[in-house]
């Protein structure tokens, strides 16, 4: 077992049999390949990440398509914990782990990583995330929201390459790692947050070769 991986991720996710099962789930999940992995990072790691995010500056983002707060890309972060996470997420070991699950050819060393904060009435309308090079979109949730709080990641089915309707809702769960394959039909949205529970998450993209 790889030391770098096992220091971040519980060993239950790293067994060959787990990887085979995860690959199958990823490919079979609808409306497009995705996975929602609970308790993904080791407890001491996710705790430190949560604490580190409280030191970061979130800037308001407001347009026709969205309303929320977001950090700059963590490429320029000076926070050791965040740099550590970023280095891990684009390390050859983690990228290889993701390749085994997704079956995609991914690039190590290149990653986009930021954090978002949604509060009452914040939202992100339907879009597909397509931008050159992006292969996998991922989220690391640091909050716990349920149906009454809104804030779910909504996945939409498509008809004739256009979004049709919401067929799956993933509610943010602390320390869950959610990712999906970016494609012309990976239509998704973040439902409006309702109430006082802030929705804190890290997000980004892994790139392809």
């Amino acid at each position: 077992m790889n030391d770098s991986l096992s220091s971040w991720i519980p060993s239950s996710y790293l067994k060959e049999t787990s990887l085979v099962a995860l690959k199958k789930s990823f490919q079979n999940n609808t409306p497009f390949p995705h996975l929602n992995l609970q308790n993904f990072f080791r407890e001491e790691k996710i705790k430190k990440i949560g604490e580190a995010l409280h030191q970061e500056t979130f800037f308001p983002k407001n347009s026709d398509l969205f309303q929320f707060h977001q950090t700059n890309d963590f490429k320029g972060s000076r926070n050791k914990v965040i740099i550590g996470l970023r280095t891990f997420l684009c390390s050859p070991e983690f990228v290889d782990f993701m390749q085994k699950i997704t079956g995609l050819t991914l690039r190590s060393t290149i990653i986009d990583l930021h954090a978002t904060l949604y509060r009452d009435t914040d939202y992100l309308l339907c879009h597909d995330d397509q931008l050159e090079g992006r292969k996998i979109a991922f989220m690391i949730y640091l909050s716990m929201l349920t149906k009454k709080d809104g804030g779910s990641l909504q996945l939409l089915s498509s008809k004739n390459k256009k979004p049709d309707s919401v067929v799956k809702e993933i509610y943010p769960c602390y320390n869950s790692f959610v990712f999906f394959k970016v494609s012309p039909t990976s239509f998704h949205a973040v439902d409006e947050v309702i109430g006082n529970i802030p929705r804190l998450a890290m997000g980004g993209w892994l790139h392809g070769r």
């Binding site: 026709d64 309303q67 009435t121 939202y123 309308l125 809104g150 409006e192 309702i194």
Partner: peptide, 9 residues
């Protein structure tokens, strides 16, 4: 032009 999303309030 666009119409800003109408929220729960």
């Amino acid at each position: 032009k666009f119409i800003k999303y109408v929220n729960t309030h």
